[in-house]
Design a protein around this nucleic acid. Sequence first.
DNA 1: GCCGTTTTCGGCCCGACTGTTTTCAGTCG
Length: 574
Amino acid sequence: MRNPKIADAFDELATLYELDGANRYRVLAYREAARVIRDCPQSVAELAGEGRATELAGIGETLQTKILALIEAGEIPASAKLKEKLPASLVEITQIPGLGAKTVRKMYDELGISSLEELRIAASEQRLRGVKGLGAKLEENVLASLERIEAEGHERRRLLSEAREVAEQLLTALRAHPASGEVEIAGSVRRWAETCKDIDIVATATDPEALSAALLEHELAEEQRSSGGGGASIRTFNDIKVDLRIVPPEEYGSLLQHFTGSKEHNVALRERAQRMGLSVSEHGITETETGVVHACRSEAEVYRRLGLMLVPPELRQGGNELELAAERELPRLVEVGEIRGDLHCHTTLSDGQNSLEEMLGAARRRGYLYLAVTDHSASHGFGNDVPAGALLDRLAEVRELDTATRGIKLLAGSEVNVMPNGSLDYEDEVLAELDWVIASVHTSFQIGAERMSERIVRAIEHPLVDCIGHPTGRLLLKRAPYELALEPIFEAAAANGTMIEINSNPRRRDLNEGNARLAAAAGVQLVINTDAHKVATLDNMQYGVATARRAGLGPQQIANTRTWRQFAGLRKRI
DNA sequence: GCCGTTTTCGGCCCGACTGTTTTCAGTCG
């Protein structure tokens, strides 16, 4: 059983307990456990089988027993028992914004509401206001939420790239406004998370009303949600919610820290503060004993007062970053400016939109020292296949262009398909002519973890394969990774000197941060590539670098921060 | 239910907002 399924079961159990009126800290414990299980890079089912799930923070003997029961019986006995008492469909009602377990339980006890449809009818018949504490406004909100849920399914997340585009435009506009002081993006966008729900911006201003107005009047704003001296809120034309919060300069650091999150990071930060006799909020740091409040102008001050190094936003994940910050051992993270070359891109030869010359010119303008052009291979579908003959023609073209170009080395490469049995779709004699070979899986995703891992390991062991492309095949918000075991893959890659890619396409981010961290720890050389299909998407490098930063990786762990000469020294073939 | 610079019991992050109240519980980020 995979981790997300176990995590979902505990989330459901947490809500059931909450509906049952259990101790809130017990509920919290189940929710925390669900999060830990979801984020765990190893199979929690296997850990529990070995009696080692208790090594995870937040999982004790009781939860381990429940995990084993879940795997054995398909359901946690405690959940089954609660579902005899309460309809399981109440859980789904708590998903509606504004309706927590307490309210849902009350509506069930007093009105017998146990499904979304019953809720809709009761709200439209204005029967909810008969319950003490519920009123007309709630009925209105419930109906609006139900309508939205019907229209767009559950709450819509979007790719970071989509939100960043909007966030950066707004940031530029707000910073240019005469009333603005400090302006910064906060939230998941600032942490470079894979997906996000909304955009948070925090600011100081000489005239807060005027700065709020600037957001409301921005050309991207479709709906003005609210406004005032404390900030403003809009919805953009592409339906992204944006919150601007404005505070006095002396509280700016505290506010920025607070709204950058993550939630898990802030919880850990506050727990640490409490042990020091301090209390952290978005207004400042309070000495519990004296009540003295220290408002913080900068984020650095927030962390300094807690005895910590400034934690880069990408690392604020609620992992071990605070311990590292306390020991002054936070890693020095790789930066976009340190990337010296891109080793995965496409041209019009396969499915790209720009020519070889155009891609080379763009790479050169970026200041790269090398570029590998890696069009798809012989068996690639969609009419974008490149027969061996065409590849050899391209090779000659690359050699000629490389000789004629100063300042950047152009490499002849290919992104070859790894067939289901692990073989490649060009003959070795053809591959041997190339400077750089990426092997990727593009077909037959459903062959099971074991066969998929063997397939990729075989490609890794091929002497002419330099690198594995987008290793897990996931597409964010679209397609789950295919089933595979990464441990043997990382082990084989380290042993064979085959590099592994962090694909920077914002829909891929593959490897993801957790797996990139594990790969680096296993001694694998990582390469950050864009997989660009046109000149503009060479800019996606920032997303791959963000994933590496979130994995805590520095330039020494990323092979393409090297010059080409240094890079060549890391390769298995010279 | 978990966990230990509070160490096997007694705590467990904080404040704003909303809608409903007339002093606050519930929800959310």
